[in-house]
């Protein structure tokens, strides 16, 4: 994050693009394949579970040591709310970036705080969801659905958590007045990562929760 070239005098790169911004885009490109593999794993095993519980259907499953009928696992209203919160956090962080670039501290700090809170809320939603699903009978190793679901959404959640830590760090810088307009790039890069985490969820939400 420490960076000694002011915004006004860009390092004379061959493309004219900022080197760190190019790096985060390169990293994002690489991450696409990371999530593609996790999603493949989920989809290949969709419908291959030997016992319940299942995402959308009632099924036979083991509950408290005996066979029982399990309700469908997914609670669409809850996850829809979490999805909306994550979407809005993407909106908030562009507003924060806009503030940072204009030197509007209030706009920067306000919207960035909102972003961090949204991120925390999403992680909280996921923790609650996992806890809830567990009590409905879906353990990590119960069936292939459980294993692949928790692995995919768990890795996404880890990315959200890292994003929250990153944005919170930038927020602390902003509050201390160390994010003047010429250093707005420090936020822009974190924001790019944050949007990426959001678009991954834009894929996961319908593919995992809604599709047949």
């Amino acid at each position: 994050m420490a960076h000694d070239t002011a915004h006004a005098m860009h390092p004379p790169t061959a493309t004219g693009l900022d080197t760190r911004k190019l790096a985060i885009w390169t990293f994002i490109g690489s991450e696409c394949l990371f999530f593609a593999t996790l999603i493949s794993n989920y989809l290949v095993y969709k419908g291959q579970s030997l016992v319940g519980p299942l995402p959308h259907e009632t099924s036979q499953c083991m509950l408290h040591g005996q066979m029982a009928t399990c309700e469908p696992i997914f609670e669409i209203p809850l996850v829809t709310f979490g999805t909306a919160v994550l979407l809005f956090s993407s909106f908030f962080v562009v507003l924060a970036l806009n503030g940072a670039q204009k030197g509007n501290r209030k706009q920067l700090i306000g919207w960035l705080s909102a972003t961090v809170l949204c991120g925390l809320f999403f992680v909280g939603m996921q923790v609650y969801e996992f806890y809830h699903f567990f009590h409905k009978g879906l353990g990590y190793t119960t069936n292939l659905f459980g294993s692949s679901f928790y692995t995919l959404t768990g890795f996404h959640g880890t990315h959200v958590t890292l994003g929250v830590i990153w944005l919170a760090t930038v927020l602390v810088l902003a509050i201390r007045g160390k994010l003047p307009p010429e250093k707005a790039l420090n936020l822009e890069i974190a924001a790019l990562y944050w949007h990426f985490v959001d678009v991954v969820w834009i894929v996961i939400f319908p593919v995992v929760y809604l599709m047949r």
Binding site: T13, A14, T15, L17, T19, L22, T26
Partner: peptide
């Protein structure tokens, strides 16, 4: 990757 694209 970034080196080759940007530091020529």
């Amino acid at each position: 990757f970034v080196t080759i694209i940007n530091l020529r």
